[in-house]
Design a protein around this nucleic acid. Structure first.
Lengths: 222, 222
DNA sequence: TAGATTGTTAATCGATTAACAATC
DNA sequence: TAGATTGTTAATCGATTAACAATC
């Protein structure tokens, strides 16, 4: 039960492996070698074997990996079969975009409720998901026991809302508020931040950095 | 001009430094030491000094860093003063959420146009941003020369659209489509992926992993 | 001046890659 | 069987941390 701690570098690669292998699976591909997988994803074959072997022996010498088996194993490692429930707090533009466009089920999550303040949306359903008043958050969390809360509130109430969620027993917070949450009990919850700004700024750095040639400028003569 | 290559680990930390120092700046704090900065952000002081010194000597012995200077230096490194222009391709829920809620200016970007197919939004403005027909993408890109395109189209047209953008001369693509873009000329463009699914799956792993105790279960007696 | 804190060099730690025996 | 490819151990590489002289 006490498995050796897996580094987050490895964990961050697993969803990419999954995504690719899942596609192979739906394309009807039955086997793949670490070599081919590495080539497709831009990793070394060695790294892929090293990563996967942290979790078990999924391959077969001389053959490679069964796509179906590998897909299911990775899904299992990532907790996709645990029937996670989630709620979304804040049904503004971003919240609604996630409700409408993000396929929670595909990743083993069921989105069971949304919360907001806007009288316009209260009591309605968005894509089949009921919208309740944030004032009733604790009641609902106690009743439906979601594992994860998707946080898409305005910044100003983000930390306060997060603390309420943690107090009510939520295990994970998927934080879209672009701030660092100030938690009373950070040890009680796993926070995954989606910092759009950080992402854009690193893009900004890289385009500033390598200054791709202006396509209008004359090329170096061969 | 040929500065030593900076590892992406360092680059990914810069926006976090910036975010924190920017807040200090607006709170009127004038100086900070690497020690204090590290403590606040969860890094070692050593790492922060190491990181910053890759770009110059921004501090002062015995004093620390001037918050204002550090903020501006990091902003400069990240290219925030370059007056980047961007467009957004796909004005569905997510696209609109970004237009309405994401403060591009705050990071040195100006959002100059949006593109879509939906007759409902064509010719309108969203938050002051005009919406044009995707058919006119090349014309507009040639005319306004955006540095970056925010890609929020449906998956099905994502790679095709990306290739059109690259061909038209866009330098960076901020990809929200949750797929790996298949590019004809990957060397001509910088892609920054925002893979929601990857993020959620790593959260899924961590909550599955450490199984925080059920708050209803009895505690270990001290 | 004495105390604080930088920038940088050296030491350590961890992650990636290479190599290869095991085996399908 | 011969060829392919795994899982794993060892070697390398890179990133983080520690230490400290320089100096404000």
């Amino acid at each position: 039960m006490r498995k050796e701690k897996i580094s987050s570098a490895v964990i961050r690669r697993l969803p990419r492996y999954y995504r690719f292998v899942d596609n192979l699976y739906y394309d009807g591909v039955t086997r793949i070698s670490s070599q081919a997988l590495g080539k497709a994803l831009g990793f070394t074959a060695s790294q892929i074997r090293q990563d996967l072997s942290r979790f078990g022996e999924f391959g077969q010498q001389g053959y490679g990996y069964s796509v179906e088996k590998l897909r299911n194993e990775i899904a299992g490692i990532l907790g996709m079969y645990r029937g996670h429930k989630c709620i979304i707090v804040g049904a503004g533009n971003l919240g609604r975009a996630l409700i409408r466009n993000f396929t929670f089920d595909k990743y083993g999550f069921t989105l069971v409720a949304a919360f907001d303040l806007d009288p316009e949306v209260l009591g309605t359903e968005i894509q089949g998901v009921p919208v309740y008043h944030v004032g009733e958050l604790e009641e609902w969390v106690t009743r439906i026991r979601p594992d994860v809360a998707v946080l898409t509130t305005p910044r100003s109430v983000a930390s306060r809302t997060a603390n309420r969620l943690v107090a009510a027993g939520v295990q994970g917070i998927w934080n879209f508020t672009n701030i660092e949450l100030k938690l009373d009990h950070p040890e009680k919850v796993v926070v995954e931040n989606v910092h759009f700004a950080d992402s854009l700024l690193s893009l900004s750095y890289y385009i500033a950095e390598d200054e791709r040639p202006d396509p209008r400028a004359p090329e170096d003569k061969d």
